[in-house]
């Protein structure tokens, strides 16, 4: 599918290009913010699994450059010097990913494993803080989907729980946590776990997230850890036993999913106004814009990450023979 036809199929793809976002997923966070007012009074925020960086862009534009001309339809706005608002407390945005990420103005990008214990001091160092005082932790991480639903949902849940573990280490009481979730067969179990740490847990589906996709976002508000809870990346919770004494607890956990009645389903909120673009709809785009100028499909702000099979394709091309490497 060409760029232009993808524009019609996917209005958020087109919008992202027009507004200089690295990925269409930026609108998911914008719509979540519009519903939950997530960015209110936020000065310290951690973006997990951040690459290619569209959520960090949203955070940067919303928190650092607030009030400035941020909706300029200029491609390549990244290079523009972002002026910090002096009247506001200094905003710290730390973005983590295992993959390298193109730097963003106003965002500290770190290449680190969110599950590794050494990551915590690194994050705290960059937040210039020695205690947990982050207002918001966000995570849009997703695994390579294999098609085996149970495995895919398990891996996604593990990414979410890894993010939760890090969040419990850095969030201030009252802080918020937003993460991608697959609403599969065991989602209620995850809701239950999140509710232990947050006063309010809502599952939200932004209009920019396709209806046909299993993804949604958990919005967990007002971090209130149970009394005596010791957050730790050395002994994270719910991500498999890390000590002999964890086994009993983990097994009890597993038994939970037999009891549908013991499960709790988070309330659902669809966010984003009905007047906004529908990510499932196909749009007829006029050939010209309102000024009568012929519409040109623009290039994405960042080319998509090279797929892991890029070299394999190059090898095939090199070997020729119509792509047939071997014959019977």
């Amino acid at each position: 599918m060409g760029k232009s036809s993808k524009d019609k199929r996917d209005s958020y793809y087109r919008l992202a290009k027009e507004q200089g976002y690295r990925a269409r997923s930026a609108y998911k966070l914008l719509q979540l913010d519009a519903q939950f007012n997530l960015f209110k009074d936020v000065t310290r925020v951690v973006d997990l699994c951040a690459a290619p960086g569209s959520w960090s862009q949203v955070l940067s534009r919303s928190l650092v450059a607030k009030g400035k001309d941020r909706d300029h339809n200029v491609v390549g706005s990244e290079t523009k010097e972002v002026q910090e608002d002096q009247s506001k407390p200094k905003v710290k945005i730390v973005a983590l990913d295992l993959q390298p990420m193109t730097p963003l103005p106003g965002v500290i990008t770190l290449q680190a494993d969110i599950t590794h214990p050494s990551t915590l001091p690194l994050v705290l160092k960059h937040l210039e803080s020695d205690s947990a005082n982050v207002d918001l932790v966000v995570s849009d991480g997703a695994p390579d989907v294999t098609g085996l639903h149970d495995l895919d949902e398990y891996i996604q849940a593990q990414l979410l729980l890894a993010a939760l573990n890090l969040a419990t280490c850095v969030l201030r009481p009252g802080g918020n946590f937003v993460a991608k979730i697959f609403r599969g067969r065991d989602v209620a179990e995850l809701y239950c776990k999140l509710r232990i740490f947050f006063e309010r847990v809502t599952v939200a589906k932004p209009r920019s997230s396709r209806g046909s996709s299993i993804e949604a976002f958990v919005v967990c508000e007002n971090y209130t850890p149970p009394e005596g809870f010791q957050p730790s990346l050395e002994n994270p919770i719910w991500t498999g036993p890390t000590r002999q004494e964890d086994i009993a607890g983990q097994i009890a956990e597993v038994s939970l999913d037999d009891a549908p009645n013991g499960r709790w389903v988070a309330p659902f909120v669809a966010c984003g106004d009905l007047s906004e673009w529908d990510s499932d709809a196909t749009y007829q785009l006029p050939d010209t814009d309102e000024n009568g100028v012929k519409r040109v499909s623009i290039d994405p702000i960042q080319p998509p990450t090279a797929p892991p099979y890029k070299t394999a394709i190059e090898m095939r091309r090199k070997l020729g023979n119509g792509g047939k490497i071997d014959k019977i």
Binding site: T115, I155, A162, T242, Q244, A248, I251
Partner: peptide
């Protein structure tokens, strides 16, 4: 008791596997 039937060993590197 179920938990006692298990014996846990430390992992050389706790990371997510496929």
């Amino acid at each position: 008791e179920l938990a006692s039937r298990y014996k846990w060993y430390p992992s050389p590197e706790r990371c997510l596997l496929y």
